[in-house]
Simulated scan of single mutants.
Amino acid sequence: MCAQSSPWVASSGDLGPPCRSACRAATLSTADRPSEVPRSQGRCASRIAPGERQESSVVKFHGASDLELRHLRAFLAVVDHRSFRGAAETLWISQSALSRTIAQLERIVGQTLLERNHRGVLLTEVGERLLPLAARALSAADDAVTATVSPHSTLRVGFSYNALGENTTPLVREFESVHPGVRVELRRIDEVPFAGIEDGRSHVAILRGLPADPRIGHVVLHQEPRVAALPREHPVAALAEVTMDDMRHSPLVVVPITGTTTLSLWDGVGQAPRQVIRVHNLEEWLEAIAAGRGIGLSGESTSMLHPHPWVVYRPVSDAPLLPVVLAWAGDQPHPLTSDFVDLAKARYVCTVR
């Protein structure tokens, strides 16, 4: 996903100056500079024989010089909201202005990044490749600005849903009181599996389930009981407690990117549902269940933080516990990561992994 996929990326994971080898003419001495290339063509000019057409890659490269942070911010906002309307409201601009900004970005990279259909706005394959790079670029820019005020004045904590439930606010307040001048910035990020750890948008992330990536360090803060989310009129909704086998006849609604529910959870405890309905986020998950499309399985904090008039939650007596995890980038942790982790561990009986 982080391969060199757009003209403004120098290499995988490298957000440095875009010229490099494409601008070899800029590194040549005066004596070595090709005589055919006038100086007025600038430092990114390359040898072009008379009558020869310039390659499209060079044209794209010149367009990349027009790239601005506002283009990337607009792109990420549309991806986050999956709609131009929601993104425009968040950015405090008109939908037409947002559309022009996205069109400019697509001209700069020379590719279509977003497609609209009846389900909303979807990323193209190129857009999928650009997404983590754009997020990393904006995070780097934010860090650069922050560093001029204080080297480590902001700790970005990502989560996909629920965070630490009712314990989130006390933890943030206590950490900021222990570290005067430091601000904890909570970010909901549910379009990537590890809530922004993988692309630099988060320094620390609160996850459900164990991260399989060995590059991500983590501790298990506690184990959360699971609950079934049922349509209000579901046959087993009248029960005070349900079993995994009670749900076998209903389609299962899941969030593949950030969710933790798989059919393997039914191994040894009952027959798994035969149909799986995939949605993008917690809101879509809730609405699908409320509409009677199927049932869901989640941590008990979901029942406290996300009540719905058409959804009932019931404890699942034989469901495996759900690990609540604090994770961070193992290779380059933020300097405040260890302090935040230590404070969070002090609030829970945890198992270190």
Rank of each mutant, 00 (worst) to 15 (best):
R39E: 15
D80P: 07
N281I: 05
Q111R: 12
P256T: 02
I102M: 09
G200S: 03
N281L: 06
E166H: 14
V236H: 08
A288W: 00
A31P: 12
Y161N: 10
P251I: 02
V59I: 15
L122S: 15
V182K: 08
E166C: 12
G268Q: 04
R293Y: 10
G51A: 05
L343Q: 03
L131H: 06
T261Y: 02
R33G: 03
S21R: 15
E106A: 07
A3R: 14
R73A: 14
G268P: 00
V311F: 03
V78T: 03
A26L: 11
Q223K: 13
S29R: 12
A290L: 06
R293L: 12
G270R: 03
V269E: 01
L321H: 09
M247I: 07
E115W: 10
S57W: 12
R24L: 14
D245A: 15
P225Q: 09
T262E: 12
L305S: 09
I48K: 10
S298L: 05
P273H: 07
S21C: 14
V352R: 13
I216Y: 05
C2V: 13
T243K: 10
C2P: 13
E106M: 07
L171V: 04
V352E: 14
A134H: 02
R314F: 03
V242E: 04
P7N: 13
A10D: 05
S40L: 13
V311I: 04
D143A: 13
N281F: 05
F159V: 07
F175Y: 00
L282M: 12
G13P: 04
R278L: 01
I216A: 01
L133N: 09
G292I: 04
A205Q: 01
A140Y: 09
W8K: 05
G217V: 02
P315D: 05
